[in-house]
């Protein structure tokens, strides 16, 4: 369980988050949604400690996050950040193997090799494993980074807009894989999403932010209504049930 208490954050004197009180229960997929500049990524970075806390508190399973040593935290919580800058030329297999770093500190044993091979299979990267990161498409690279975080084998997995470079086939496959990890491997997954349809279709819970404030949070079934989502994005969002029984959201 991640408990966030009265969390506020400023960057360059501008408030990004103000007074967030939020509990993320263990298990399931939680989608962080909201318009641009809502503070979704900042919230994720504060939980993963990529940004240091200014005011408020974050606790993981009752322990203050700030008091957990970095190498211990890496065994509990893995993060996939948004890609910036140039990727270094690592083979995909090596990249995924580096996900074992918190466990091995550079000395992998048989079990680690097994985890790496299984992860490569699971993410459909076996054929690409000897390719360098700069020789594959943006989507394949993104998948490799998610695979690396998966190989880290932590209870919590935080992902910042992982669908950014993915086409609809791979976006759907990734969401399905995350959902499966939550169900079968009992992982807790927090994911920043832009696409409302993916959020509603795959997440168990939705947390909505707007202008640095917590607007809503709860089970998808209860909060994913036309009124609540239209208010969150300040845009008319209509919902329609298809013949196959799926819900589709229109906002264009």
């Amino acid at each position: 369980m991640i408990e966030i208490e009265n969390l506020s954050h400023q960057i360059g004197g501008k408030p990004i988050l103000s007074g967030i009180d939020l509990t993320l229960p263990t298990g399931g997929v939680t989608a962080l949604i909201g318009p641009n500049g809502a503070g979704k990524s900042t919230l994720l970075k504060l939980i993963s400690r990529h940004l240091s806390l200014q005011s408020g508190a974050v606790a993981l399973d009752g322990v203050s996050l700030a008091s957990i040593p970095a190498d211990q935290l890496a065994l509990k919580l893995a993060t996939v950040s948004q890609e910036v800058g140039v990727a270094s030329r690592l083979r995909i297999k090596d990249l995924v193997a580096f996900g074992r770093w918190p466990h091995t500190k550079g000395r992998p044993d048989k079990a680690d090799h097994y985890v790496v091979d299984r992860t490569l299979q699971k993410f459909g990267l076996v054929d690409l494993q000897n390719r360098f990161l700069d020789e594959v498409s943006g989507g394949q690279r993104q998948r490799a980074f998610v695979a690396m975080a998966y190989a880290q084998d932590t209870d919590w997995l935080l992902l910042d807009e992982p669908l950014n470079n993915l086409d609809l086939v791979h976006a759907r496959a990734l969401m399905a894989e995350l959902k499966r990890m939550a169900l079968e491997d009992e992982k807790s997954i927090v994911i920043v999403l832009h696409d409302l349809n993916y959020a509603v279709a795959w997440a168990d819970r939705i947390v909505g932010l707007r202008g640095g404030q917590l607007e809503m949070s709860g089970k998808v079934k209860t909060v994913a209504t036309s009124e609540i989502l239209s208010a969150l994005y300040e845009t008319k969002i209509e919902v329609e049930d298809t013949a196959s029984g799926r819900r589709v959201w229109y906002y264009s």
């Binding site: 990529h50 893995a78 993060t79 950040s81 990249l95 996900g99 770093w101």
Partner: peptide
């Protein structure tokens, strides 16, 4: 090598 993946990836792996 890990540091070459960037600050955030390094922190996520628990690297100092």
């Amino acid at each position: 090598t890990v540091a070459g993946l960037g600050r955030e990836a390094s922190l996520s792996l628990g690297l100092n």
